[in-house]
Amino acid sequence: MKAFLSIFALTISLSASSQQYITRQGTLSFDAGSPLEDITATSNSATAVYDAADGKLGVQVLMTSFQFKRALMQEHFNENYVESEVYPKAVFKGKFDDGRAIGALTIHGVTQDVNVPASLKEESGTAHLLVEFEATIEEFGIDIPGAVANKIDKQAKILVDCKMQSR
């Protein structure tokens, strides 16, 4: 019995340590553009963590790491819209479960529950997370002034593409 227990404990400890994945160079992009204005931005320094044993999944990105095509748009994004000095990052904490990412998404200090289709492929020491979903900007308390309301899509399309390595 003791032998069995010790082997069992060992197995857990070994498997657990080999089933965690991480990257700090994940890609996270969004598109909130309209026919009037091209509003897209990409960050290549998103952090993603995943534990295959229990499905725990976390993704985080610094708002100032988003690169826009236009410098002024980037400044407005940080200063007037997401207020990066007060809310420096966007975070998802939750689970990957049966083809879905389920958890809490925090942007601009506001947390919303999300449950969206996702793909996560484990392959020889890597785990590739791919999620494409839409978020309603207003739900995160981000104010869009009337003058530019028709230039910004109220539904931002968000693409997460993170190739994690086992740790």
């Binding site: 965690q20 963590v49 534990d51 725990k56 976390g58 993704v59 985080q60 975070v91």
Partner: peptide, 9 residues
Amino acid sequence: QEEDLFDLL
């Protein structure tokens, strides 16, 4: 370590 997974973020 698992408990701290999100701390890695």
